[in-house]
Design a protein around this nucleic acid. Structure first.
Lengths: 213, 213
DNA sequence: CCATGAAATGAGAGTAGCTGTCAAAAGGTG
DNA sequence: CACCTTTTGACAGCTACTCTCATTTCATGG
């Protein structure tokens, strides 16, 4: 649900023979910073955690932290599902109804994301609810994801991806999904996220179905 | 499209006999800060404008600026349409189809907002496109407006305003409308905003109608 | 295997947004 | 006019973030 660089590494950082030592080190540093941040945030909260502390625990200089992540929020948020989702969208058969495609791809993305690290998914959404700056940054990334979605919808339907209609449609979907994440976290992750997304898709597809108090 | 305090003053700050001198001065200060900010932003851009400069031109101390506005972005963004919209929503007949109500109220809000100060509307949306921090703050306020909309939808349909369905529905609408503002500004305000909103409503109501490339 | 060039890092200084405290000034009230 | 409350300004302080420059670390061709 976000853009940015470097994959979450399906491989461990050490065993990638094709990459030079330099690249491998960079990946390691990136992960060290992330890990340090998550740990510190868990221990003392987001606001109380300073870049200096993060740098210290990750054993790099503060300068380096900023070289790897433009903002503090990005350390927590940055992931790389956007291109993955895009790929999956393209892989679906062209004659499949659009909403089915979306539903399928979202479910798959969730499966991947949660399996990857359920703790992190929860911490992340929790921070979105708790810390305005994080939520804010997350919403920022909605625009990026939105442009991508427009592209996909354009390819799919032959419409102009820059038209108002497509853009509104895409943003409505993303807004809905974002709200689903917030809902999930606000209710302490009690629900099954996949079910929630399913219900969200129903609403996006049919609107509020008549009277079901 | 935003929450917050103090109305944009249908009255000029001086002629309000019912308010004490203290209150009148507060309103004046608030407007002075806003005016100073708009002017400076126009002259030298948003980022180049510092709180110190704003304070100087508004003839107050920097501390005072922060007392009136929690963040720099808020000086530019803060308006008070949310309660107005809420009121209008409640005023519409209960048996009117929901989408018609929404359409009507949005159009009215736009008419008010634009008439109030067309320059400011444009500058504001322009900044939303240009300055990430402003866009970010704007999106933040989406949550607030969202909760309000949920409330209205709840009253209207008898549904639980905290249910996932209502929240997703509300957020989809707001996301769509937000995107409309961005679209408007990105295209240099060439379109008639009212028409854009009308088209947005169509999409929100019926989805992407079949094949109109 | 070493020398040369390129890239990554660290150190430090600097900016600006924002918070908190406290004393002075201004507004309201008897 | 005196007393109390609210608002303000001055100042100190924190932290995210930027920029610059010297140093270190890796890559490569001879």
């Amino acid at each position: 649900m976000n853009s940015m660089t470097a994959a979450p590494s399906p491989f461990s950082p050490t065993d990638r023979p094709q990459l030079g030592l330099r690249e491998r080190k960079k990946i390691k540093t990136r992960e060290a910073i992330r890990t340090a941040t998550y740990a510190l945030v868990r221990e003392q909260g987001y606001d109380a955690t300073t870049i200096e502390q993060i740098a210290e625990r990750a054993e790099v200089s503060p300068s380096t932290v900023f070289r790897y992540f433009p903002t503090k929020e990005d350390i927590v948020l940055t992931d790389e599902y956007d291109p993955l989702i895009m790929e999956e969208l393209r892989a679906r058969p062209m004659d499949e109804p659009w909403m089915d495609t979306l539903r399928f791809v979202m479910q798959k993305a969730i499966r991947l994301g949660i399996k990857d690290d359920p703790e992190v998914s929860r911490l992340r959404t929790h921070l979105m609810v708790q810390v305005p700056a994080v939520r804010s940054r997350m919403m920022e990334s909605m625009s990026v994801t939105g442009t991508m979605l427009c592209q996909a919808i354009g390819e799919r339907t032959g419409r102009d991806p820059d038209s108002l209609e497509v853009r509104v449609y895409a943003m409505a979907i993303i807004g809905g999904l974002m709200e689903t994440s917030l809902y999930w976290a606000e209710n302490d992750h009690r629900d099954d996220f996949k079910d929630l997304v399913d219900r969200t898709m129903d609403v996006l597809e049919h609107g509020l179905s008549p009277e079901k108090p």
